[in-house]
Design a protein around this nucleic acid. Structure first.
Lengths: 346, 346
DNA sequence: TTGTAAGCGTTATCAC
DNA sequence: GTGATAACGCTTACAA
């Protein structure tokens, strides 16, 4: 591999000049620039990324921490990651996929973490990854509200999750539903807390009582019913217990799918018997199912892009306006899975 | 951030010794090791990854090239990526998510690529990413057979795709089906070529004629019917054209889902009227659908792990036995979506 | 087993 | 606008 000295020698300039041609941190005359570039191509030279990093102290990479373990991407994750990669590459940044190491890192591998910043997906209450970032002084942006008591003023992007569930609930109430089952995300995730609040608030604002059977939480990843979440809840609440639920709000497409299957087994029709609302699903799955699923679009790829932009502000790549929290708009996309209840009696 | 010199000074050893304690490339006395480690912890010192890379010429990162653009992960991808990350972290390697840059890299960002090797997912015929790797001399492993005419002897992991479709087809034929529709992957992917051959071979081995309506290919990513693949094909072939298909083989869970929807709209029952076989789907989706879906398990996470292991052999991390191609076993998982045809008449 | 010192390939500083 | 030269923080012969 050709080095900067080789190019400098052949182009008859100093290595400082060659450096400037590539980094564009200082102007160079066109004549010299052209010659350097020509020689570089000829020698197949490109600056060594590592050597550059050593002196600039920038790795030009950001970490993307995703939930670890036996984890499955939903449509939300996929689109989010797409947004991150695209936006990062726009600023010349690479994306390092990043999990919390399951076992402790072995000493021979131990070293500093070669990223300039990180995007932390879906923090939990008192998230250990966030502690790590904060203590290592790595700039980071979370997707979802941070609730670590020791970490204040974190940068984050998020939907207004309280509003999300509030509006969904309101939407259903206005269609005449008053017995709504909410299949919420995992209890530890900050989003689920906000959404629960929004749900309750909407109910109370409409003078409806929130009963126990109305709110469920997705079990832990490690749980063996994790993949089935939505099925049992639907079977039990709508079937065995006969709670008279007329509408279901599902946390994601997978959950909706499970609920839909349960209703098929219960011989319940959507939306005639039960309305279904999906919070953030895979477009194709929602459009293709029959009926197509009414949903709340959380704009995951926009969340991804904005989280990178917020990171760039911390890194000084973008001018920092010190706005620490970005809220991404969400909006209801009406399809055919929610119906108006005929008899609007109380 | 503390540096190696700070630790050396405080521990009253040379920096070479400190280096050895962390890299474990040379033995150190327990007494010294313990002292160095203690001081390091005290100063919060860890070796600088970049500086180490500069001299060792290893970045301890591998690239994972995924299809770019408006792309959606199927269950296959998710599990595959899980396998890669887990196995890579086992050897102390990090994973750089890697897409072909959509626009040409701008000069100020131009530099060498900081990875030691790469895993290339699902190569196409004459894949440009593979050309890039080969010309840059970056060790790589493909997942799926390489068909670039200029790239010989590439390392790859794969299922025996010809056998995969052969066995599926044979399985269905032995259940009495002779009019089978195969919703294959994209035509440009090497897997689809192999699978098509296997399908045809199985048909011919059983003296069945392969007709035009039997083999379809997933459209290009850019196509606006990409997400719907399976729906139209099913509607047209089983509905409008009335070709008398009794079994469908779907390339992935999404495709199966579309086909299932089409059949619902056509008032066709699975498996009574039509049998459905999924090549590699999301477990939960297959188990939860009604009926649960019979499928071929391709072991995606094992593919991921093995691809990393093959890379490690090229990088000298693992002893190299020069076996360039690893075949991962696949096996049929019978569930309830395939039925035996009653009348086994020709 | 440990210390010494020469790199690794850049960029940054300071002259000119 | 360009050239010399000292960092950047580590590993690795080689010597002891």
């Amino acid at each position: 591999m050709a080095k900067i000295d080789d190019v400098a020698k052949l182009a008859q300039v100093s290595k400082g000049t060659v450096s400037n041609v590539f980094s564009q941190k200082r102007p160079t005359s066109n004549e010299v620039k052209e010659r350097v570039l020509r020689i570089s191509k000829q020698l197949n030279y490109v600056p060594n990324h590592i050597a550059r990093s050593l002196v600039t102290k920038k790795t030009m990479a950001i970490g993307l921490t995703i939930p670890h373990g036996n984890f499955f991407f939903s449509a939300f994750h996929t689109q989010f990651i797409n947004g991150v990669i695209l936006e990062a590459s726009y600023y010349g940044y690479r994306v390092l996929l990043d999990m919390i190491p399951l076992q402790k890192v072995q000493t021979p591998f131990l070293s500093s973490y070669p990223i300039d910043g990180a995007v932390v997906m879906r923090p939990t209450t008192n998230d250990e990854r966030i502690h790590l970032m904060a203590s290592e002084n790595i700039p980071f942006v979370t997707v979802g509200r941070v609730m670590n008591p020791t970490v204040l003023n974190a940068y984050s992007v998020d939907n207004d999750n309280q509003a999300v569930s509030y509006h969904i609930c309101k939407y259903l109430i206005e269609k005449g539903h008053r017995n709504i089952m909410f299949l919420n995300a995992n209890e530890l995730m900050t989003v689920s807390i906000d959404r629960k609040e929004g749900f309750i608030k909407a109910m109370e604002d409409h003078h409806l009582h929130v009963e126990d059977h109305m709110i469920h939480h997705k079990p832990d990843l490690s749980s063996n019913v994790y993949m089935d979440y939505g099925y049992e809840e639907t079977m039990t609440t709508l079937g065995k217990l006969g709670k008279g639920v007329t509408a279901i709000i599902a946390d994601d497409d997978r959950t909706a799918f499970s609920a839909l299957n349960a209703m098929k087994d219960l011989n319940l029709k959507v939306p005639e018997d039960v309305s279904v609302f999906v919070i953030c699903g895979d477009l194709s799955m929602m459009v293709q199912s029959n009926p197509s699923l009414t949903s709340m679009d959380l704009q995951p790829s926009e969340l991804g892009a904005q989280s990178v932009r917020l990171l760039m502000k911390q890194l000084g790549v973008l001018p920092n306006d010190f706005q620490r929290n970005v809220i991404i708009q969400s909006k209801i996309v009406e399809r055919n899975s929610c119906s108006t209840l005929g008899n609007l009696v109380k």
